[in-house]
Simulated scan of single mutants.
Amino acid sequence: MKNNRQKEKQKQSTRELISIDDLTDYSIKTAYGELVYFIIHPTNISVLSESTVSARIYALMTVLKGIAEIEMLCLNSKENFDENKQYLKRRMDAEPNPVIRKLLQMDSTNLDRMQVQMATAREFLIIIRLNKGEVKEQKDKASDVFPYLSRIEKSLKDQGFTARRADNADIKRLLGVYYEQNVTTEKFEDFDGERWVILGE
């Protein structure tokens, strides 16, 4: 029985394994609802005055009160070098040659420097679940969805946030960051090897 379940799991696609039914041009369709993402450009509050920070908090509260279906997500858009650093440490401990040990130490220091530079790389996302509450009725009419999403985007901008709705490419990149901390891939394919397919031949 256990072997059968394991075989069935192996046959599943990546989308099925992470419970995604479909990726549209503007959303992710899952069994728990259709999710639309708005990317919020972060603000460096460390350089703002206390009154300005309070105003930003109040603006966010206003957005949250106005949209019942809102959810929030914060991503670390940076690579994780912990495994690389552990490997280098093991190599240094086992390496008898002092010159090689010094090179390994320099590699480890470089990884530390890169991680510090990317430590503030954050992405803040507002998520709208389209089939919850009042929006469920609007979802039945596709023509009503886009005006509703535009109103949310306008509400964010009216409160002083630099925001935009994530498109298909943004969503694939966000999934790459969320599931594997992949911040280096420029273009995500829908299928492995898609870039090598030449249509019309």
Rank of each mutant, 00 (worst) to 15 (best):
E79L: 04
I39Y: 00
M114D: 08
T120W: 02
I70E: 02
M92T: 07
T24R: 06
E194D: 10
D112V: 03
A68F: 10
R173Q: 11
Y37E: 03
L35S: 00
N182G: 08
I40S: 00
Q159S: 12
F188P: 05
N44I: 06
M1A: 15
F124S: 01
D93Q: 10
F188D: 07
L111M: 06
L125F: 06
E50R: 11
R15A: 14
L64I: 11
I171N: 02
G33E: 04
D158G: 04
A166M: 06
A68M: 02
D82Q: 12
K157P: 04
R56Y: 13
R195W: 06
T62D: 14
V177N: 03
G176H: 09
E71G: 12
A59S: 13
A119M: 07
E189Q: 15
F81A: 03
K89S: 12
E8H: 03
A94E: 11
I126G: 04
K65A: 10
R122F: 13
C74K: 11
K7G: 03
K2Q: 14
L23I: 15
L104V: 04
R5I: 09
D112M: 11
I70Q: 01
R122Q: 06
G200V: 01
K102D: 11
Y58S: 13
R113S: 10
I40R: 06
S155I: 12
S150N: 15
I39D: 04
L125A: 02
G66V: 02
A68S: 14
D192M: 05
Q12A: 14
Q6A: 14
V197E: 03
P98W: 03
N97Y: 00
K139T: 10
Q105W: 01
E8F: 03
Q181V: 05
R151T: 13
K102A: 05
K89N: 11
E186G: 04
D140G: 14
T185G: 06
F188Y: 15
K132W: 02
Q115S: 15
E34P: 01
G200R: 13
K9T: 07
V53R: 15
L17D: 07
P42H: 03
T109R: 09
E153Y: 01
L88H: 00
Q138R: 14
M61D: 05
L35C: 08
Q117Y: 08
S27I: 05
R151Y: 02
E79F: 08
E50T: 11
E95N: 06
D192V: 07
T185R: 13
A94Q: 10
L175K: 00
M118E: 13
L88Y: 11
L130C: 05
R15G: 05
Q138H: 09
N3L: 14
Q138D: 03
Q86H: 09
K139R: 07
V116F: 12
D107Q: 15
T43H: 04
R122H: 04
